[in-house]
Amino acid sequence: MRRITDALGREVALKPRPERIVVMFNYEEFTAIAGTGGWSRVVGMNRVVWEGWRPAIFSRYRDLVPALATLPDVGNTDEGTFSAEKVIGLRPDLLMMPAWAWMAAETIRNQIAAAGIPILVFDYNAQTLERHVASTLAIGAAMGEEARAAELADRYRRNIGTILDRAARAAGPVRPKIHLELGQGGMEVVGNSYSPATMWGRIFAMLGVMNVAEGRLAGNWGPIPAEAVLAANPDFIYIGASSWTNRPRAVRTGYGVTAEETRRSLAPYATRPGWAGLTAIRNGELHAIEHGLCRTLFDDTATLYIAKRAWPAAFEDMDPVAALADYHRRYLPVPFSGTWMLPWRA
């Protein structure tokens, strides 16, 4: 047995080479670290968070990793389908689960641990440099890919450090005001915004911009009143977009999505009651940004996009879309394509 430290600082004892692994989230991070070959040791997964939430992305990986089509499902905590029986029945020698599932399923994970199955917790949702690095190194150690994980962790640490350093130098006495809202339901539906504790809200906090949602949410995410956005008069508005299924009015981004499709789905937001007079709309600073770009090992590209819009001169020599394409080329098996972040006006 050997011991590794996971993202929560827990010491996890596991075999020198786990051969039967259940993975529950952050599949693109797992692939970047372990390669497509790492999937040959996976015996179960939480299917809904990938196949169900973002089938357009899942299908591209399934074409390269055919086993994804038939891997058993261990369920998801949000739907109440995650169970100890499903995990234990697969006879894994390692369960990798995100911190949000760990916190939501105390009884179930205690049952799994009691069955002698080691549990490694990773946490990209916290959206902190420390948790991203710790999660990456832990997955790399578990999969025997320490060098690859160290390279990815160093890349992330270096890129985030550069972005935050330039942002701090460029920032003036007045912080840019940013509103971000999840765009699943279309302009008629007020989507979730995020507190400084997590995901997009944490990115805004790191950059030092003013998050319109700060102090207006009871928890880490949720909708804020429409009148609060009007009163704040943000300088920049971001609509979280993706290739969600069964969401015909959602703002669309992702693989294979053209800029025209994205702008067509984003444009109705500019017509919301009262929005025409907002500084962001008048200045053309309404943006679509792929929601899946937060809580990932390549969310530095989204962070760069937001920083470059706020302080263009400080980031004139840096291209977030090119950086995302380069990440795909170096670390992911799926070719880069489509639209991931752009303003509503060409």
Results as ranks from 00 to 15, higher is better:
residue 234 P to H: 04
residue 2 R to W: 01
residue 94 L to E: 00
residue 124 Y to C: 11
residue 335 P to Q: 08
residue 71 L to Q: 02
residue 23 V to G: 03
residue 104 A to H: 05
residue 195 S to W: 05
residue 203 I to H: 14
residue 195 S to A: 15
residue 7 A to I: 09
residue 199 M to D: 14
residue 32 A to T: 10
residue 153 A to Y: 01
residue 70 T to V: 05
residue 17 R to L: 02
residue 130 E to T: 15
residue 270 A to T: 07
residue 193 S to Q: 04
residue 240 G to R: 02
residue 168 A to S: 14
residue 254 G to W: 02
residue 206 M to H: 15
residue 9 G to F: 02
residue 151 E to H: 05
residue 282 R to A: 15
residue 295 R to M: 15
residue 159 N to G: 14
residue 50 W to E: 06
residue 302 A to W: 08
residue 26 N to Q: 10
residue 76 N to R: 02
residue 123 D to P: 06
residue 181 E to R: 07
residue 219 G to Q: 05
residue 212 V to I: 08
residue 294 C to F: 15
residue 15 K to E: 13
residue 79 E to L: 10
residue 145 E to D: 03
residue 255 Y to Q: 03
residue 122 F to M: 13
residue 251 V to P: 03
residue 116 G to A: 03
residue 80 G to F: 01
residue 74 V to L: 06
residue 103 M to Y: 05
residue 34 A to Y: 02
residue 223 P to L: 05
residue 278 L to T: 06
residue 230 L to K: 03
residue 190 V to T: 13
residue 60 R to S: 00
residue 133 V to F: 05
residue 332 L to M: 06
residue 272 R to Y: 08
residue 56 A to T: 11
residue 55 P to E: 08
residue 226 A to D: 13
residue 158 R to I: 13
residue 261 E to F: 06
residue 258 T to Y: 01
residue 204 F to G: 04
residue 219 G to A: 11
residue 25 F to V: 09
residue 287 H to C: 10
residue 237 I to L: 01
residue 204 F to D: 12
residue 275 W to R: 06
residue 29 E to K: 05
residue 127 Q to N: 15
residue 48 V to T: 11
residue 3 R to M: 08
residue 216 R to S: 01
residue 22 V to I: 10
residue 317 D to W: 04
residue 86 K to M: 11
residue 13 A to F: 00
residue 279 T to D: 11
residue 330 R to F: 13
residue 155 R to G: 07
residue 264 R to T: 12
residue 153 A to T: 03
residue 6 D to E: 04
